[in-house]
Nucleic acid binder design. Structure first.
Lengths: 205, 205
DNA sequence: GGGTGGATGTATCGTCCCGATACATCGCAG
DNA sequence: CTGCGATGTATCGGGACGATACATCCACCC
């Protein structure tokens, strides 16, 4: 998930950790950012896997020896995406399985990079997400009606607020889906354009 | 956090893991449950710490030897809260520091057990939560106004939805706070009743 | 009679992620 | 000139998660 987000951001331009974190918070809707405790290890992991390439442009070695205590002199480490990384990102971005919309965070990241996603995949993910939330809606409504009497004021408020927030998200998704269907001049992503496959097993309606 | 929730649930009656998980999901508003991968280790931890006591009522040993393959015969393990556990819960429930409302999950759990919380603490937590969200609101609004032009349709929708959801929660909290202030016959929790301290440093208005 | 699926139930493993913390530099305000 | 907040990289321990395994019981249906 973090991997996905990092690849998506580096798609635009190389960045270093600090920037990455800020951009991430911005692109993800502000709610729930990422910690350095996950970011830096993830960057190392991905560099080791060849998905991104590190480049630290502070060759302090060419400075005169009287440089002030090079102990721990750390330059910014700028990361750029590799060809392999782009490949991986294309994979991730076009996967529309349940893991793409069942998980909250996953869905958010995917949506944030929807401009890199083909139109049919977008629709599938949006609808999958809505289905997931509708099921949750039913379960919550049920549970609320059954246990309503046994709950105190605060738990009740919590339940209702949770349900409201799901309702709200469903409505939001419906807007997005409608907008999606009413957008014929789709901005075809220049990369990984599917060769006009008709995908007969997929219901567009 | 899990610890908090478990203690809160066991306050009512002893339970075993499976029940705990279901009750937890119910009391927490349905959104975001807990996995066994965290629950069972947590129970062991807490039992080792003396906060809860395990009791497995399936003494299969008294069965005749022809019992069918006692390999892995596992009885239900019922956990009950101990005196020490109740003490710890009282501590947790009356702590109104930033950790009580800065973190999403923490706040939810605390709210779910508000009936065990003194009225002044309730108000402090509710207001603290609202402040936290209002700050987030400002940051989001700012960020949205500044970067609006550079975002594509989807990121924009994500941002707006995030902001809306924060707005909504602020309004919800305001309702709760108002209700709190308009409730003079507070159901004093029978345990840990604060000895009528007036708390002069706390603004009630 | 038999099997299939689902709810109940306990438990572990590897992986990921978070909060806290440490260290270092730089610019700006007091 | 001094300290403080932003920028910046990094680690550590603990906790949570998803997947998985195993086991029982019951209801439903063929």
């Amino acid at each position: 998930m973090l991997e996905f987000a990092i690849l998506g951001l580096l798609q635009q331009s190389p960045m270093h950790g600090y920037e990455l974190r800020k951009e991430l918070a911005a692109v993800l809707g502000g709610r729930r950012s990422i910690s350095y405790g996950s970011l830096y290890p993830a960057l190392k992991r991905m560099a080791a896997a060849g998905l991104i390439a590190a480049d630290e442009p502070t060759p302090r070695a060419l400075l005169p020896a009287d440089a002030p205590a090079l102990t721990g002199r750390r330059g910014k480490v700028v990361y750029a995406i590799t060809a392999e990384g782009k490949e991986r990102f294309a994979e991730l971005v076009s996967s529309a399985g349940p893991e793409a919309y069942d998980d909250d965070g996953r869905f958010g990241v995917h949506l944030a990079f929807f401009r890199h996603t083909a139109a049919d995949v977008r629709l599938r993910i949006l609808e999958g997400r809505r289905r997931t939330l509708e099921r949750q809606q039913e379960r919550l409504t049920d549970s609320l009606r059954r246990t309503q009497a046994k709950l105190d004021r605060y738990s009740l408020a919590l339940q209702r607020h949770g349900l409201d927030s799901v309702d709200r998200e469903v409505r939001w998704l419906t807007e997005l889906i409608d907008g999606e269907r009413a957008a014929p001049p789709q901005p075809v992503p220049p990369q990984t354009a599917p060769p006009t496959r008709d995908e007969p097993g997929t219901r567009t309606e």
